[in-house]
């Protein structure tokens, strides 16, 4: 088990290093540069462009820039954002909370609702519930998230006036304490519903398919023939086997969750990291973007290791490989 873990961690570190190099090169090779975007089109000043290009070392060859980036990184410093001249770590740290609140809550809801309904549908295969859920899963799977978000705003905020349109807090009321927490949850509702609805279909279909597949395995037929109770077969044998693919998908999605909610954060003016990333991309804020990608690749690596470990615990076949 220790050897298994060691190997997984080494792979993880390798992934982070490789992605660091690739990200750096790709970002810098993309057309455009942050300084010309900063200078704008209204009244750009060559003096300012020169001063800033010099300051951020953007005239140096790319490998020199990479080396100096890695040097500061080794000191534990993610550098300064070009857009705001603020430390990258501070900018990212400020946005992690809202993103995790939205992304984690939604992925947990989606995995619970999706898997439960998937299992239920599989056990009642062909029932009205199964047919309806199957249809709905395709509808939401093919719905663009920004469109769904806007529709929910139009229905629940503009027409029915139940929920707020956008943002995280009521700026007029400026609540404090518990009232503020309630206010945030209130604002969280619509974006949360959007992200959850979009994600449920994955979990629904995976759970449904793997339960159906496991139910048709020979050993299950044998249990049935031996007269074992349907409930016991399900709890003890089907569920354990059928849940493995869900865990894999959950692990992968967990890692992509931050970038995945970016569009929804923009539609609902939710102050998260996805939005920060989109702005950083369009403004070519190299240090900020590198910082975000580094955090993403670290979290992807960590999630993969954790999923592998859970897998090994649930399924002994893997750890004795």
């Amino acid at each position: 088990m220790a050897r298994y873990l060691r190997r997984r961690i080494l792979t993880g570190i390798l992934i982070i290093l490789v992605s660091l190099v690739i990200n750096f090169m790709l970002i810098h090779l993309a057309p455009g540069n942050p300084i010309s975007l900063l200078a704008g089109k209204d009244n750009p000043s060559q003096e300012m462009i020169d001063a800033l290009t010099e300051k951020y070392g953007l005239n140096d060859p790319i490998h020199i820039q990479f080396i100096s980036y890695v040097k500061t990184l080794l000191k534990g410093d993610l550098g300064y954002s070009i857009m705001s001249s603020e430390p990258v770590s501070k900018l990212i740290f400020e946005k992690v909370g809202p993103t995790l609140l939205l992304a984690l809550t939604s992925i947990l809801l989606a995995v619970v609702i999706g898997t439960a309904s998937g299992i239920f549908a599989a056990r009642k295969r062909g029932s009205l519930f199964d047919v309806t859920m199957n249809g709905l899963s395709y509808v939401f799977d093919s719905t663009p998230s920004f469109w769904l978000g806007l529709m929910l705003i139009l229905i629940f905020a503009s027409k029915l006036k139940i929920f707020p349109t956008a943002g995280m807090v009521d700026l007029r009321a400026q609540h404090e304490g518990i009232a503020k927490a309630v206010d945030i949850l209130w604002h969280l509702t619509l974006p949360l519903i959007t992200v959850t609805l979009i994600q449920i279909p994955y979990y629904f279909r995976i759970a449904r398919a793997s339960v159906i597949q496991t139910m048709s395995e020979d050993f299950i037929t044998t249990f049935r023939a031996a007269g074992m109770k349907e409930n016991k077969i399900f709890k003890k044998y089907i569920f354990k086997n059928a849940i493995l693919p869900t865990i894999t998908v959950f692990g992968i999605n967990l890692a992509y969750v931050i970038s995945g909610v970016a569009i929804i954060e923009i539609v609902f003016a939710w102050p998260g990291m996805g939005r920060l990333m989109m702005t950083a991309i369009s403004k070519r804020d190299y240090p900020l973007l590198m910082g975000i990608y580094l955090i993403l690749s670290v979290s992807i690596a960590v999630c993969m290791i954790v999923v592998d470990l859970i897998y090994a615990v649930i399924d002994p076949r893997i750890r004795y490989d």
């Binding site: 905020a157 006036k161 956008a166 943002g167 700026l171 923009i266 609902f268």
Partner: peptide, 20 residues
Amino acid sequence: VVFSIIPDANTAVQALYNKE
């Protein structure tokens, strides 16, 4: 004066209609 940050113009328009 409070500036409310809403990145999507369509959402901002709805926020105006909804008196936010």
